[in-house]
């Protein structure tokens, strides 16, 4: 089973490469607010959800796709761990 760090790093890599054009991986912290800082909008959220679903072969339910679960790297990591 993947550990917390591995999950965290994989999601981070996706966000840095796909949404931030490869910039500033060091500055993106676990608690950085992804929606308030404009990194995630409605369309990019769909892409992150699709990535998570494909990477760990899971389904994110509609009621789970909210800010509490997707608002930061830490929150996403927790969501993935809870579903593994």
């Amino acid at each position: 089973m993947p550990d917390t760090k591995e999950i965290h790093n994989k999601i981070k890599e996706f966000i840095v490469d796909e949404l931030l054009g490869g910039e500033d991986a060091d500055e993106l912290e676990g608690d950085t607010e992804l929606v308030r800082t404009g990194i995630l909008d409605s369309v990019s959220t769909l892409r992150v959800v699709a990535f998570i679903e494909g990477e760990w072969d899971m389904e994110i339910e509609t009621h789970e796709a909210n800010l509490d679960n997707l608002g930061s790297l830490d929150a996403m990591t927790k969501l993935v761990e809870s579903k593994l």
Partner: peptide, 22 residues
């Protein structure tokens, strides 16, 4: 860094006004 600037912008601007690239 872009992230630092995003955090700075987020204190003053709504998310739809934060640039995609710095």
């Amino acid at each position: 860094s872009g992230i630092k600037l995003r955090k700075y912008c987020a204190e003053h601007l709504p998310p739809y006004m934060i640039p995609d690239a710095f």
